[in-house]
Design a binder for these strands. Sequence first.
DNA 1: AGGGTCACTTCAGTTTCTGAATTGACTAAC
DNA 2: GTTAGTCAATTCAGAAACTGAAGTGACCCT
Lengths: 159, 159
Amino acid sequence: MARADLARQTCTIARAVSLVGDEWTFMILREMFLGGRRFDDFQRQTGASAALLSQRLKKLEAEGVIRKEAYSERPVRFEYRMTAMGRELWPAVITLKQWGDKWLGDGPAPVEIVHKSCGHVTEPQMTCSECGEPMAAHDAEPRLSEPFDTERQAMRKNS
Amino acid sequence: MARADLARQTCTIARAVSLVGDEWTFMILREMFLGGRRFDDFQRQTGASAALLSQRLKKLEAEGVIRKEAYSERPVRFEYRMTAMGRELWPAVITLKQWGDKWLGDGPAPVEIVHKSCGHVTEPQMTCSECGEPMAAHDAEPRLSEPFDTERQAMRKNS
DNA sequence: AGGGTCACTTCAGTTTCTGAATTGACTAAC
DNA sequence: GTTAGTCAATTCAGAAACTGAAGTGACCCT
């Protein structure tokens, strides 16, 4: 199966991955959450080639994750900003940061997160929406909904 | 800059991304969190080609995210399991699932998460480790540590 | 007039990925 | 005791994606 076909699966993880689950898209998102808005920023801070960057920004814009806005007429110059949809990718990026800090870092974390409303440096964590306790993989049991379960069983059989 | 060079950056997001931030790696992780362990499961449920799968599993094993274990001698057969390092990628996968469910889904979510200890279907959320309140992008202010900040300023200047 | 900025586009060469076939060490069925 | 099947791969040619460098167009600044 080609990468692009992930978008047509029932699984919403597959769909999300086909939209934002690649190396350079994550780098662009990181940059935006650090305040980057311009093509140039992205190019310098992420190291992506201009061609790639242009292609990815177009895709993200087409899917509604970011939006392009002129910040100057004459000359016409654009910058990119996140939509509500894009902003909600923050947990995905932060989560990778935490993991990277813990398992791949070799000193203090290069970026700290300050929680504006309480003023503290924070290490955001996943908690259960129902009981409020922190959650990890072993606390979670996935339950497949019926139609999706059937789809997966089918894959198990044929071939 | 080539994708592989991301691993050599100071930024721990870049490092994490170079290790697990690609389409098929996410699909493998999804599959493992749904209980998949064997080469065959991965192939069928993710749709990745055998060559790719083999390469990715090797990389993840080499980096310590998963481990390979024989589940049968004669014939020697292997399965893959997560290490502690791998298990801690759960929030990253869940976070993408939540986002996909909300923005890319077209019905009820194909997978629900049950919080074992409280028994409820849950929608895990990011909360501040200090005050316990839910957090989103606008509540967070990134603060660059000194050496990293300097590194980024430098990038801003030279071309 | 000459140089610089910014957001790209173009393109040749390289790398990575896909799909299909094949391998090797077995087991299970006829 | 051949034949078929299972499983975890590997091999390979063709296709797709990415890189790095150069170029473009609409300006501005001196």
